[in-house]
Structures are given as C-alpha cells and as structure tokens.
C-alpha cells in the first residue's frame, strides 16, 4: 500500500557465475559446493525476512479468506470455502470501487507518461543549471505520499484553499468552489491530479535514463536527411524508448491500481463514496467492519488482477524487444 521502492519489477538474482557449472559437474570441485553452501548461508537472513514479512502473512491471508474471521484474535472460526469471494463479488460497492480504480489507474498513468515524456525531454536538453532543474523536478517524488495528500487537501480546501484563491484572482472562476466535497467525479479527478503531480517526476527520470542512452549521432543523421524535430522524435526517440516506457508503465499501473494512502488522506473515500478504490474498500472491510476474511479475499482478488496485468505487460514487453533491433 505504500510506495514501492524504485526497484526493478522483480528481484532477479545477481549473476551468480559459478552456480550453473556446479550443477552440471557436481563432483568436479569441492570448492564449488562450499561456495554454494556459503551462498545459501548468506541468503538465509534475507530469505527468513522475506518469509516472515511477505510469504507467511500472504499465506495466512489466503487461508483466512476461506474462513469467516470476524475478530482480530486467533481462534476457531467456521470454514466457509469460497463464500467470501462469491459474497464480495456480488457486492455492488466492490464494482463501484473497481470503476473508480480503473479510471484512476488509466488516467493517472496516461497523464504521467505523457507529461513525464515531455519533462524528460526538457531535463535532457543541454541547459545551464541543468542539475538544479533535475533536483527540483525530483522533489515531488521525494515527498511522502501522506504529506502530498495533506498538501493537496489544503490547496483544494473549499474555504481557504490556494487553488480557489488563485483561480478566482485570475478570474478563471467566478468564486470559491468545492473541489473535494461536492462532485464525487471532480474529487476523483483531483486525487488523480495530486497523484500525477507526485509521480510524473519518477516517470520523467526513468525516461531520462533511456533518453541518455540514445546516441546523439542518430538525431544528427536524421537532421542531415531532412527530418524535423517531430519526425525525429517519432521515428528515433520513441521507438528507442519503448523498453523504458514499458517498464515505467508496468510500475505505474500496478502502483496506481493499489492506490490507498492518497485517498485516505485527501478525501477519506468521500464524497458519497466517490473516491473509494479497491484497496480503500478492502481496508474498510477488514479493519472498520472487522470482516477480515472479506478483506483477505478482496486482497487476493486484487493480487490476481495485478498478476494478470503483469503477465500481459511482460508478454508485450518481450514482443517489443523481439521486434526492436
């Protein structure tokens, strides 16, 4: 639920050179066996941590989702099979939340990608004080989501907010208006704005990394051949950025799909439940209503959806890599 570290999407183990040969000739050298043992020993602490804080809770949650657990304490609870899943899938509130989540995910990811692409171009441009611009651009992303949410809640405050003051002073709107309390759809869009403001910089930096690997000579050659900037962007920059774009899409879609904290801080799911996302609904079920099983089954449905998304993305990614030279 919190922002994931900016890591690669999966923990691909570092290239452990000696391992494959050792498997092929297990008895060739004793040293190789010792090395494996050492490697396993060194991996053990990390494995224990992963088991303790990821796999074990995940397993427990899965089991809980088949029981009817209605209190936070361990104890005997009736086994209900898949009833939690069928009940929750029949709940209208879930599908409303799915709609909000889908809208949030698509719109915020799309905006972040488009804006991030533009921002990355600017950051790559040979300007003076480029380091300063880069430092400023990374700031929003460095802000904790909770702080960002609180900040936007104040900016958009209907009575005292800066947004209202600014827009009214500039005569872009007639008077103070409510951003987060009157129209549920507007409130959802405002949450999107807050999310885009924060995460565009991350996207921009991912794309900047890609931009810097494109040899300048390609653009120069294109210019010699008479291609304008737009054409060279479409024919050179964009195709070469595809792997970066794909990566950032995977990261941002999955993150956006799990959105919780910014909603909790900015709107609390309101108005009229108009900003309730799947994870927010899961939280309400599990902790406010003490329907832990219902919450666990919801969480598993979310995980399944994300896993499917990841599979689709990975397939697309591989295809694009096969096609690119």
């Amino acid at each position: 639920m919190t922002a994931a570290p900016p890591a690669r999407p999966a923990p691909t183990p570092p290239a452990t050179g000696p391992a494959p040969p050792a498997r092929r000739w297990p008895l060739r050298r004793h040293a190789a066996g010792g090395q494996i043992r050492l490697a396993l020993l060194l991996l053990l602490p990390a494995a224990l941590v992963v088991f303790g804080v990821v796999l074990y809770p995940a397993g427990r949650a899965l089991v809980i989702s088949f029981y009817d657990v209605d209190s936070p304490f361990p104890g005997r609870y009736p086994f209900v099979g898949l009833r939690n899943y069928t009940d929750i899938l029949a709940d209208r509130r879930l599908w409303t939340a799915v709609g909000h989540t889908a809208y949030f995910t698509v719109v915020s990811t799309a905006l972040e990608l488009v804006l991030g692409l533009g921002l990355a171009q600017l950051l790559a441009a040979p300007l003076r004080l480029r380091w300063l611009f880069r430092a400023i651009v990374i700031l929003p992303w460095a802000l904790p989501t909770i702080v960002n949410g609180a900040m936007w809640r104040w900016i958009l405050n209907a009575q005292y907010g800066v947004a209202n003051a600014l827009l009214t002073e500039l005569h872009l709107q007639d008077g103070y208006r409510s951003w987060l309390g009157e129209d549920p759809f507007l409130a959802l869009n405002m949450v999107v704005v807050a999310d885009v403001w924060k995460n565009t910089s991350l996207v921009a930096f991912f794309l900047l990394a890609g931009l810097q690997t494109i040899p300048r000579g390609l653009h120069e050659a294109a210019r010699v051949d008479g291609a304008g900037p737009i054409r060279s962007f479409l024919r050179i920059t964009l195709p070469l950025l595809v792997p970066n774009i794909a990566l950032v899409l995977v990261l941002r879609t999955i993150e956006a799909f799990k959105v919780f904290d910014i909603v909790y801080v900015m709107t609390g799911g309101g108005p009229a439940s108009g900003t309730q996302t799947i994870t927010f609904f899961t939280y309400l079920q599990a902790f406010s209503a003490q329907r832990f099983s219902s919450g666990a089954s919801l969480a598993y449905l979310t995980v399944t959806a994300i896993l499917l998304l990841a599979l689709v993305y990975l397939r697309l990614l591989r295809q694009s890599e096969l096609r690119s030279p």
């Binding site: 990821v54 397993g59 427990r60 304490f73 361990p74 104890g75 005997r76």
Partner: peptide, 23 residues
Amino acid sequence: SAISGAGLLLAACDVGGGSDTSG
C-alpha cells in the same frame, strides 16, 4: 508465484487453530 505458493502452504498449518479463549 509457485514459491510463494509453497510459503502459503506452510502458513496454512496455523490458521484456524489457536486457543478457544480468543484474546
């Protein structure tokens, strides 16, 4: 996912058990 699945099975031994005197 399969490895996680194995972790899940291990965890399964625990749930639903516990003492009767909840809490």
